[in-house]
Design a protein around this nucleic acid. Structure first.
Length: 416
DNA sequence: TCTGGGGTCCTAGGACCC
DNA sequence: TCTGGGGTCCTAGGACCC
């Protein structure tokens, strides 16, 4: 197999950098990146977590995902700004435009991370290291934020390499550099070694990626099943997945969930939330041209315990009413009267919807389809609030939940 | 006013069939 | 009086990622 050259590019403190740049461009005096600051959700509606942090905030050991309450205890006077997802989508697209000029093969990994296949491109743009620096400089100059770029022969090494030291840097992590650049790192820095696996590895006396790489793969397989094999390979830099540029890999499921601003204690409110979640899920489903066979409902209770319940249709559907009715049924079977903090709806087992659905047993199938279509069109044209079901009047609940709504992005699923 | 939201993949155990 | 065994489908839950 031919040796590849892969770049991994990710934005330093993405949401926070983008927020900082926007504010500077609109007359702000201070750069959020220079002070202890975070992008955080709205605490009043119980979305109060850290979404992104500045480097000065990181010095206070503030972590992404922790509560703003905890973050402020670590750093009194912490600046907290709300997120603007439509802005982040614009930044994402702008940087993608730049990357695509250097290779036809760019894989979007998340809103702030891409892989770029630079194999066979040297003849056009020059040596990888020089080009990576050129890209880094261009993004900084033209868009105002900094990125880290990792270079190697596969996606895994490029990604770990890119994380070596931040911000605004380019690193290589070629296979021959693994022993001295990657193996000394703590094992939790390895992709796929998370909160649950790290302690298990520690119990085996494995604290660094190098120790994992040189551990007995049979022992790891015995303790961690196929996952043990996977992370052993990763620790040795073995990973061969291709950079998939042509759009995203096909989607497997569509979900929508929300933390409600108050604890729901009755079926009627819960079903309204289910409806608003289902509206968005089904709109996205139809937009993508799929029908779904499996519906799952999840709830997180007041005590943070999490429950799910799922069931299959005999015939896949994209109809809001069908999926909503199923969601309610599942909810009734799942709910035992707990106070509900969070509700989710997810559909999966998707198939293309371009076959003619037999409506032998459901004579009003066509009517339902027309209704969904009409509502979709109105919402696409005039925004999601242009039309909604009357049960939401005076309910204190969102009639359509989820997605980023903006003039430029009427229906856009948030990527993070 | 402590703890979001959107994904993918894997495993375990029970039902059911031959 | 000891009660298979393999395969598939289904559901619940847990792990990881950003």
């Amino acid at each position: 197999m031919k040796k590849r050259t892969i770049f991994h590019i990710d934005v330093n403190s993405a949401y926070l950098s983008w927020e900082a740049v926007y504010r500077l461009q609109h007359g702000a005096e201070v750069d959020l990146r220079d002070i202890p600051s975070v992008v955080g959700g709205d605490e009043a509606s119980r979305h109060g977590i850290v979404l992104a942090k500045s480097l000065p905030a990181k010095k206070y050991k503030i972590q992404t995902g922790e509560s703003l309450f905890a973050a402020r205890q670590k750093c009194p006077g912490l600046i907290v700004v709300p997120p603007h997802y439509a802005l982040y989508m614009q930044c994402h697209k702008a940087m993608l435009d730049i990357f695509s000029q250097y290779s036809p093969s760019v894989q979007v990994f998340s809103i702030d991370e891409c892989f770029l296949d630079y194999t066979n491109m040297e003849g056009i743009w020059g040596p990888p290291l020089e080009v990576a620096h050129a890209i880094r400089e261009r993004v900084k100059k033209e868009l105002g934020f900094t990125v880290n770029i990792g270079i190697s022969t596969n996606k895994l090494l490029a990604k770990i390499g890119g994380d070596l030291k931040k911000p605004d840097m380019v690193h290589t992590l070629y296979p021959e550099e693994i022993p001295w650049k990657m193996w000394p790192l703590p094992v939790e820095d390895l992709y796929m070694v998370g909160r649950a696996t790290a302690p298990k590895l520690h119990q085996l006396g494995i604290y660094t990626i190098g120790q994992l790489a040189n551990a007995d793969p049979e022992l790891l397989k015995y303790k961690l099943k196929s996952f043990g094999q996977l992370i052993w390979s990763y620790a040795n830099g073995i990973e061969e997945s291709p950079v998939v540029n042509s759009g995203r890999p096909p989607i497997k499921g569509i979900g929508n969930s929300t933390t409600i601003s108050f604890d729901v204690d009755n079926r009627s409110d819960a079903c309204k939330v289910l409806l608003s979640l289902t509206e968005t899920v089904c709109m996205r489903l139809r937009q993508a041209g799929y029908c779904a066979r499996l519906v799952a409902v999840s709830i997180r209770a007041n005590d943070f315990f999490h429950y799910t319940h799922q069931r299959k249709f005999y015939t896949p559907t994209d109809c809001t009413t069908d999926i909503y009715e199923m969601a309610c049924k599942l909810f009734d079977e799942l709910w035992k009267g707990q106070l509900i903090r969070h509700i989710g709806v997810r559909v999966s087992e998707l198939c293309a919807n371009d076959f003619i659905q037999l409506s032998l047993f459901e004579e009003n199938n066509e009517k339902k389809k027309k209704l969904d279509e009409t509502i979709d069109n109105i919402r696409m044209k005039y925004g999601s609030r242009a039309i909604f079901r009357s049960v939401f009047l005076h309910s204190g609940l969102q009639p359509v939940s989820g997605g980023v709504m903006d003039e430029d992005y009427q229906m856009m699923s948030s990527l993070l």
